[in-house]
């Protein structure tokens, strides 16, 4: 994993979108500031209706912001939308192909809208299909592909003009678990092999966690948290360490020792099980064991549980992402 130390490829300032609904203004996106650097995979995480897709569409020139500005791949969103369009790829959650069109036809016709010649479009299209394990679909109808194949075809379409930045809107929605895992591998591969910067929206914590170098958490049209998945989780609640002992008395003695460690919060003992939280379970565990060993205590079982992004979301907003 590389976190982007590259130049900024998206810089948005105060990006805002207000709708009129029955005469009343509704703020779908309330002035978002964000920066994405070249080579990053940034996940935009939030519940349905939080403003993810609206923000994405604004950055893709599909929706005009009602306030704020953004520069995307060096082009001003308002002054040069065509420049932005030339330089970005966009993969919508709705898809990109007609069911009774052949995959190859859709790829070539899409490429030609970027001014790419037929032969070059076919060469690139076949290479991309190969890279996304779709080598044999060129002459197949898009409607005959499986959900996972069709989503990968959408990604091929979005990459045909070799953009440095790709927007993926809810990439794995509606896919079965195997197709999702496979899709994630391919998305990571895009960045690792081609250096493509990826900005994706998702309302799945596991997806944001598995793919993103950095996560922006959005709720009610505003960014409420930002950081690497690990930092976000560490910042919120720390890891939970659970130690089992032979009996209650030993667990109580261990609790005293654990409580004196740096950064550990109030240990709880339940029967012969001790539970406490530390900022980082991985670095705390050796200290815990050495301190217990000096006191002659030996746990019979150990478990370190990392907080999930749902815990993060819960702490930031008071609601669960699943709601």
């Amino acid at each position: 994993m590389t976190t982007g130390n590259g130049a900024p490829i998206i810089v948005a300032k105060g990006l805002k979108r207000t709708y009129k609904s029955r005469g009343k203004p509704v703020e779908a996106v309330r002035g978002i500031d964000l920066t994405v650097r070249e080579g990053e995979i940034v996940g935009f995480l939030g519940p349905n209706g939080a403003g993810k897709t609206t923000t994405l569409k604004m950055l893709c020139t599909l929706l005009e912001p009602t306030g704020g500005d953004a520069e995307v791949v060096g082009c001003d969103l308002r002054a040069d939308p065509v420049g932005v369009r030339r330089r970005i790829g966009y993969v919508s959650q709705a898809g990109s192909t007609a069911s009774n069109a052949l995959a190859g036809e859709e790829i070539v016709s899409h490429a030609r809208l970027y001014g790419i010649g037929k032969a070059e479009a076919e060469r690139r299209g076949r290479a991309l299909l190969d890279a996304l394990d779709l080598a044999d679909v060129w002459d197949r109808k898009c409607g005959s592909l499986s959900g996972g194949q069709r989503r990968r075809l959408d990604i091929v379409m979005g990459l045909i003009h070799e953009p440095r930045l790709v927007f993926l809107d809810e990439p794995s929605t509606g896919l079965d678990p195997q197709s999702r895992a496979n899709l994630w591998d391919h998305i990571r591969g895009l960045r690792d092999r081609m250096g493509t910067t990826i900005f994706l929206t998702t309302h799945y914590m596991d997806e944001a966690d598995a793919l993103s170098d950095r996560i922006l958490v959005i709720d009610h049209g505003a960014i409420v948290a930002e950081g690497t998945p690990a930092a976000l989780k560490a910042g919120v609640s720390g890891d939970t360490i659970t130690l089992s002992f032979a009996d209650h008395e030993t667990a109580e003695r261990a609790a005293d020792i654990a409580g004196s460690l740096d950064g550990a919060d109030t240990p709880e003992v339940e029967d012969a099980v001790l539970r406490f939280r530390v900022p980082n379970g991985g670095t705390a565990l050796p200290q815990v064991f050495s301190a217990l060993g000096q006191a002659g205590l030996t746990p019979i079982g150990v478990e370190v549980k990392r907080p999930t992004l749902d815990d993060v979301f819960l702490t930031m907003t008071g609601r669960s992402l699943r709601d």
Binding site: C60, T61, L62, V82, R85, R86, I88, Y90, S92, Q93, A94, G95, S96, T97, A98, S99, H110, L113, Y114, G115, D154, M157
Partner: peptide, 16 residues
């Protein structure tokens, strides 16, 4: 139907 399958947005996001 084309809009629902994402084809329209896919074309609108090109410089066409």
């Amino acid at each position: 139907a084309e809009w629902r399958t994402g084809v329209i947005d896919r074309m609108l996001v090109t410089p066409a």
